[in-house]
Computed example of a mutant assay.
Amino acid sequence: MRSLAETLRGQFERLVEEGPRMAREAREVSITESSRDGLVKVTVDARGSLLALDLDPRIYRRPDARSLAESILETIRRATDAAQERVLDIFEPAVSRDDMRLHLQGTPDQVVEDVEDRLNRREGL
C-alpha cells in the first residue's frame, strides 16, 4: 500500500512540476499522414480531430467514391493512432502509458487532476 502511495506521490510531484509543460506540448500535437497511394493527406490534432484534408487531383482519374472514403478513414485512423502515441510519449515521464491511455478520452489537464484526486483519496484527505 505504501509503495502505491509513494508511486502516486512521485507522479503527482512530477505532474505539478512538469504538468503544465506536458499539457501544452500535448495540446500542440499535430500529426500528418498520407495514404498508402499518396492521394490522401490528413492532419489531426492530439485527440484525432481532423485539422486538414488534402486530396491529390489524381483521385479524379479513377473515380471510386467508396475506395476514396475508405482511404480517407484509414489515413485518419493511422494519424490518430500516431497522435495518441505522441501524447503518451509526452506524459510518460510522469504518468504510465496505461494510465495515460485511460485519460486520452479527456483533456491533458484532466490527468493532473485525476492523479491529485487519487493521491488525496489514498491519504484520506
Rank of each mutant, 00 (worst) to 15 (best):
G10L: 11
A52E: 14
E113D: 13
S34V: 02
L119R: 00
R122D: 03
E17H: 14
E33A: 15
I59C: 03
D56F: 08
L55M: 02
V111D: 02
I76E: 14
I76S: 02
L39V: 02
D64K: 08
R2I: 15
E123T: 13
L68T: 04
R2M: 15
A79H: 02
E70T: 00
A26L: 06
P20N: 05
P20R: 02
D109Q: 14
Q105N: 10
N120P: 04
T75D: 06
P57T: 04
L50C: 03
E28S: 15
A69I: 01
Q105L: 14
T75V: 02
L88N: 04
T107G: 02
R101Q: 06
A23N: 04
S3Q: 14
A79Q: 04
R121V: 14
P63F: 09
D89C: 03
A82S: 12
V115Y: 00
E113I: 07
A23G: 03
P93C: 10
R66G: 03
A69N: 02
L51W: 07
E28H: 09
A83E: 01
T7F: 13
D114L: 07
D64I: 07
R62T: 08
A46T: 07
S67L: 11
E85K: 14
L53H: 01
A23P: 01
L51D: 05
R62C: 09
M1A: 14
S35E: 10
R2V: 15
H103S: 08
A82C: 09
E13I: 15
R36T: 04
G10K: 10
F91V: 03
E28C: 10
A65P: 01
D117M: 11
D56C: 01
T32W: 10
R2Q: 15
E92G: 10
V29R: 10
